[in-house]
Nucleic acid binder design. Structure first.
Length: 533
RNA sequence: CGCGGGGUAGAGCAGUUGGCAGCUCGCCAGGCCCAUAACCUGGAGGUCGUGGGUUCAAGUCCCACCCCCGCAACCA
């Protein structure tokens, strides 16, 4: 199985902040989850540089546009690297490969007869980078999203994309593939948009008015509108227009991860564009001739910072690299997806991070590992207790612990949740699930009291402790996508090498008994030191 | 009739197909002592925004209404 996942490409008029980090980390988690499961995974992120916003930002900084773009793209790429984001490729829309892809795509759409020239006079909102029809304006004839911004009255001849011709096909797509857009509330939202307002798009600007953008093939007097070129990045990164074999390998994307603000472009315009181009490009067709559309688009929510909207003037925009100095970045990743239902809006609250860190991570997970390792070392000569791996023996029937079968069930749930991008539910199950979970593992200690049991029944004590240690090993792999560093630390504390991930099949990795009875346990280290000490 | 989100225990949140209202934190009481003053048990605390309706049964479906949040720029 192959898995191709993308983040949106980010505007480079500023450096990454906590919001773009959230999106990127979400994609990273899903990519890691698929990699761990043996899927051939390709994770793409990058920068959207053909925007007038870049030009303005470059001017403001007093730098030459190219210099500015190069610097900013490097900042984005390096930020993700420093945070340990496991992207496989970083696409810039100023790259040659992207221009080639756009060129090919445009020509295919043109050949389909879906590009036409028209002269018109309309209001253009610089804030939205979009034209506004009269019905989209507020009472004062201003952009409802940017009421303080003067609208430009634009009169020019542009190329248009005949999006309206695909209205029915798009609605049919939504109908046939209920999972095309997640979560479902976004599908409802976009469906009503397509039904009521999916009009033809202007997809070019007069070159003399914009100082950036890809030239329209065959017409140097026009530049391609930024959204039309931007979406194509998902194809150009996997060889469209430059490497057919590569493209066939990866396209279509399995998941476009986007913020809720840009679903219109991804869920409606993008499929329409592909439908059009596919008519005249066999590379974009399935065997039956239907267009190769992305499998799914997942729209996540936004969050406020301590209850307030993130904004520069309020000074609450958070630099992820700074934040990573305050808390271990894995803890931030955990917080994002434990605290906020994936797809919902949420609130970024430091007190809650500290709470989650102390309670869920330190007290529940860290302490469990620590007490299990300590007891094993103390009672079993510094080793993993020597038990028979015969599953018959692994019955701790006088406790509420669900045993091996329950761990297998938990794995099934976790796999399913990662597959459906419900990272929040996966974590919930690992911590609070029934049958086997971190909470129940801690309860098992209370129920069996190995620290007393050791004097009466060493054999059973060995079983209990092995169960705890082996469960920690399982949990380490369950949380690996969310907390890769912590996961590796746990594996190491259990005396194993985290790199076995590269030589071991996933099915073996998650099989009960992966921890070798009688193997050495290194001296435990505190996994989550108390904050502020 | 601009767009969108939301109103569930003190706080923060879950609640797919309608079927005795859950989770985490906090609080109170108790237990335990292996462990990061950590762990476990029990308890108090909610008329699920309001009013109607459908149903044997609604937080969950339908209608109306009230209230809160975001929407200059930055911006996932």
């Amino acid at each position: 199985m192959k898995y191709y996942i993308t983040t949106p490409i980010y505007y480079v008029n500023d450096k990454p902040h906590i919001g773009s980090t959230y999106t990127t980390v979400a994609a990273d988690i899903l990519a890691r989850a698929h990699r761990l499961r043996g899927d051939n995974t390709f994770f793409l992120t990058g920068t959207d540089e053909n925007s007038q916003k870049s030009v303005v930002a470059a001017e403001k900084s007093g730098k030459n546009l190219d210099v500015y773009l190069n610097e900013m793209a490097a900042i984005w790429e390096n930020t993700w690297k420093e945070l340990g984001v496991s992207f496989d490729d970083f696409i810039r829309t100023t790259e040659e490969r992207h221009h080639k892809a756009v060129d090919r795509f445009w020509k295919a759409v043109e050949k389909s007869g879906d590009i036409y020239k028209d002269t018109y006079e309309r209001h253009y909102c610089v804030g939205c980078e979009d034209f506004k029809t009269d019905s989209e304006l507020n009472k004062d004839d201003r952009c409802p999203l940017h009421p303080n911004k003067d609208l430009d009255l634009v009169q020019e001849e542009n190329y248009f994309f005949k999006a309206s011709a695909y209205k029915d096909d798009i609605l049919q797509l939504f109908h046939n593939h209920q999972n095309f857009i997640q979560p479902p509330k976004r599908l409802n939202e976009i469906r009503s948009y397509v039904k009521n307002g999916f009009a033809d798009f202007s997809i070019s600007r007069e070159a003399k008015k914009v100082t950036c953008g890809i030239p329209v093939p065959g017409d140097d007097s026009q530049r391609i509108y930024v959204w039309f070129d931007a979406l194509i990045n998902y194809m150009s990164a996997v060889g469209y227009g430059t490497d057919d074999e590569l493209f066939k390998k990866w396209w279509p994307a399995n998941l476009h991860l986007v913020g809720k603000d840009i679903i219109k472009f991804h869920c409606a315009l993008w499929p329409a564009m592909i439908m059009s181009a596919a008519k005249n490009d066999p590379l974009l067709q399935n065997d039956d001739g239907s267009p190769k559309l992305p499998e799914q688009i997942f729209a996540h929510g936004f969050f406020t910072i301590e209850g307030q909207k993130m904004s520069k003037s309020l000074g609450n925009v958070i630099d992820p690299l700074e934040l990573a100095k305050e808390y271990p970045f894995d803890a931030i990743r955990y917080f994002f997806f434990r605290e906020i239902g994936f797809g919902n809006d949420g609130n970024f609250d430091r007190a809650r991070i500290a709470e989650r860190y102390q309670s869920d991570l330190a007290n529940t997970l860290g302490n469990l590992l620590n007490r299990a390792v300590n007891m094993s070392r103390k009672y079993f000569d510094g080793k993993v207790p020597l038990v028979s791996l015969d599953s018959q023996i692994h019955k701790l029937s006088d406790s509420s612990w669900g045993d091996v079968e329950a761990v297998e069930t938990l794995w099934q749930q976790v796999d399913e949740y990662y597959k459906t991008a419900r990272i929040d539910l996966a974590l919930e199950a690992i911590w609070n699930g029934e049958g086997a979970s971190l909470i129940l593992a801690n309860r098992l200690v209370e129920e069996t009291k190995p620290f007393k049991l050791i004097k009466e029944d060493p054999e059973k004590t060995a079983l209990v402790l092995y169960t705890l240690l082996e469960f920690c090993r399982n949990v380490a792999w369950m949380i690996e996508p969310v907390m890769p560093k912590i996961s590796a630390d746990i594996i190491k504390q259990l005396g194993q090498n985290p790199n076995i991930i590269h030589q071991t099949k996933f099915t073996d990795l998650k099989k009960w008994g992966g921890l070798e009875p009688g193997s050495d346990l290194p001296e435990p280290k505190i996994l989550f030191p108390r904050l502020g000490e």
